[in-house]
């Protein structure tokens, strides 16, 4: 009888959940559909009749404009892809180690160091000293390292990792492992890492997204176009059209630069987002419930 009551609640819950989640999903997807449709619409049609879910006048001009130099954009994809891969792997390694150490109750300075890490989100020296550091002191100008290293860690992800570890890993387990004679690094590698898979997936996802979406580091430090990241490649394309149009004063030439401006913007969003959305389901495999603490043993 209790079970019957419980299943009623479950049904009620599911109706609520399906309904609400469906509405939210539609709200989230709708604008994206408009973006995709807009990117496939003739620019004049956008200018005169606005955006629609189905293109009024179909056109691939926007994509043609962006892929004017396909080798450039493919190169940018490669740079971003490799950078994301390397950065996320290294970052995940460093962050999980830091999170692990800072979660250890027997580590005396864990709170001091946590605070010092957190402190950097509030206080900073600003853009210029940091720029001088990377550019003039570390001499990373125009180097791939300048694209990779600044994104390796963020205070938020370290502390988040620490919380995940504390959360799914009771203190007694350290004690037990220590008694078994496992070293600090071994506990991390063979006990902690396997248990925090959802946490690793989350932090890894966010790291990867940060790398994928970055354009600022390219903008600041890279001067060779073949080293541009994807987002910067696209963003800069937009800016250069705009600038050239404004600078046309005194160009002395009337080489007409008339990009299909609105649809190009939208096509850029599609190009930059597409691959990530395709990869997303793979990441989701790690979001699996039911791994219990007891189920995993050294």
């Amino acid at each position: 009888m209790g079970l019957n009551m419980q299943s009623k609640y479950v049904i009620f819950f599911n109706i609520l959940a399906y309904l609400f989640v469906s509405i939210m999903t539609i709200l989230c997807v709708l604008p994206f559909l408009i973006i995709i449709s807009g990117s496939l619409t003739d620019n004049t049609s956008i200018a005169t009749s606005g955006y629609h879910l189905i293109p009024r006048v179909f056109s691939l001009e926007a994509y043609r404009t962006i892929f004017q130099f396909p080798e450039g954009i493919l190169q940018a994809y490669a740079v971003t892809g490799i950078n994301t891969l390397v950065g996320t792997t290294l970052g995940l390694f460093f962050i999980s180690m830091a999170g692990y150490v800072l979660s250890r109750k027997d580590f005396k300075y864990r709170n001091t160091i946590s605070f010092l890490i957190y402190f950097t989100t509030i206080f900073g020296g600003g853009l210029i000293p940091w720029y001088i550091m990377v550019n003039n002191v570390l001499k990373l100008h125009d180097s791939y390292i300048a694209l990779c290293y600044p994104g390796l860690m963020t205070p938020f992800l370290i502390i988040l990792m620490r919380t995940f570890i504390i959360h799914s890993f009771p203190d007694e387990m350290y004690e037990a492992a220590k008694i078994d004679g496992a070293g600090d690094f071994r506990i991390y590698r063979s006990i902690v890492l396997p248990i925090i898979t959802p946490g690793l997936a989350t932090v890894g996802l966010f790291l990867a997204l940060n790398y994928w979406n970055d354009w600022y580091l390219s903008s600041m430090f890279i001067s060779t176009p073949s080293k541009y990241e994807l987002q910067f490649y696209l963003y800069n394309m937009l800016n250069s059209y705009q600038a050239l149009n404004q600078m046309l004063s005194g160009s002395g030439a009337s080489v007409v630069i008339n990009p299909p401006s609105e649809s190009v913007k939208l096509a850029m969003a599609v190009i930059a987002t597409g691959p990530v959305l395709l990869l997303f389901p793979f990441v989701q495999r790690f979001f699996v419930a039911g791994i219990t603490v007891g189920a995993v043993k050294g």
Binding site: S219, N236, S240, Q242
Partner: peptide, 18 residues
């Protein structure tokens, strides 16, 4: 400098002594 943020970068170049 590229057109993105060119005026910031232009100022940085001059003001950081590169």
């Amino acid at each position: 400098t590229s057109w993105t943020d060119f005026s910031t970068k232009y100022n940085l170049l001059l003001q950081t002594g590169q």
